[in-house]
């Protein structure tokens, strides 16, 4: 296996803010790297440097062996980029957007049309292909944006917070898309603020904080280091909450947190197998649960356990603003 994304010691400042403060990354071909971190951790800046849109102050980066600064044109031919904000021409139709990008990639007209049609089909946008993008829903825009970054059949795909602002259904569709890309053999780097998302999609996760990679590993390793999951059970009949709490206490060996008014019982768990046991016991007791779930630790909890401080978004507003106006 070879490393198709490589970055060493990337540093970049925006005024006083150190957006990147010595970032090293290495992504194996055909894998998905989840870059996890709060707003302002440097995720977007890292993507922009790797995708040739921003120059680092220090350090170097390579895509498939090509330097992102010296060989920017070749790198651009190898990558697909979907930014945080859909970068499409709102006034053109979905099809026109894709054909235009195909033509800019030097595809003959017929080939550009064929690829556009294929991608529209694959992203379930065929029905809307002839409509102006400004009439699209948020999820449709994002799918078209991702389709646009796939026209050159990229070896490396960058997705910057591809599901931020999407409803759960649209998010699920984007997830499916990312999985398909990985199956096609593309190497994917996606940034996210949700551990759940990184867990669902990524082979490895790099946790960003204040412009540095503070943790790097498989989702399983990270979850093990980041602390325990939470069992959540909600009684359908609120008056039986205490009975429910007793069952949870017995099975987890922990004192559960109980909210009588909502019928909600939560307890930390180490063994995910407890979920099955809970379902079985509830069944035996004739208790109906409105919700039974194992929750991953939130980004805040991950940060708290990895860094000892909460995922603070202070300074993020400044960085976002800078990234919006300056490169």
């Amino acid at each position: 296996m070879s490393q198709v994304i490589r970055a060493e010691g990337l540093r970049k400042r925006f005024g006083e803010t150190r957006a990147l403060d010595g970032v090293d990354l290495a992504v194996e071909e055909g894998t998905v790297l989840g870059v996890l971190g709060p707003n302002g951790a440097g995720k977007t800046t890292a993507v922009r440097v790797l995708a040739t849109l921003a120059k680092p102050d220090e350090g170097r980066a390579e895509i498939c062996g090509y330097d992102v600064m010296r060989d920017a044109t070749r790198v651009r031919a190898l990558i697909g980029l979907t930014g945080q904000y859909a970068s499409l021409d709102e006034e053109l139709t979905g099809r026109e957007n894709l054909v235009m990008i195909g033509r800019l990639l030097d595809l003959p007209r017929a080939e550009a049309r064929a690829r556009a049609a294929g991608l529209l089909e694959r992203f379930r946008l065929s029905d809307a292909a002839g409509r102006a993008v400004k009439t699209y829903s948020g999820g449709m825009r994002r799918r078209l944006d991702i389709a646009a970054s796939m026209i050159n059949r990229p070896r490396v795909v960058f997705l910057d917070e591809p599901t931020t602002g999407l409803d759960p259904r649209a998010r699920g569709e984007v997830w499916d898309t990312v999985r398909e890309m990985a199956l096609d053999g593309a190497t994917v780097l996606l940034t996210t603020q949700y551990l759940e998302e990184a867990d669902a999609l990524a082979d490895r996760i790099a946790v960003f904080d204040h412009g540095r990679v503070i943790e790097d590993g498989t989702p399983a390793e990270l979850k093990a280091r980041a602390g325990r999951q939470t069992l959540v059970v909600r009684a359908a009949e609120v008056f039986r909450t205490e009975q429910l709490a007793a069952i949870v206490a017995e099975l987890t060996g922990e004192r559960p947190e109980v909210r009588l008014d909502a019928g909600l019982v939560t307890a930390p768990v180490t063994d995910p197998g407890v979920l099955r046991a809970v379902v079985q016991r509830l069944d035996e007791a004739g208790l109906v649960a409105a919700e039974v779930a194992l929750r991953l630790p939130s980004l805040d909890e991950v940060f708290l356990s990895l860094t000892g401080h909460a995922a603070d978004a202070a300074g993020s507003a400044a960085e976002e603003q800078l990234e919006g106006s300056v490169r």
Binding site: A51, L53, A77, Y85, S87, I101, L104, L105
Partner: peptide
């Protein structure tokens, strides 16, 4: 402002 030019800049043109 809308980011359309970011797309163009990420293409080999």
């Amino acid at each position: 402002r809308k980011g359309v030019f970011d797309r163009f800049r990420s293409l080999p043109i």
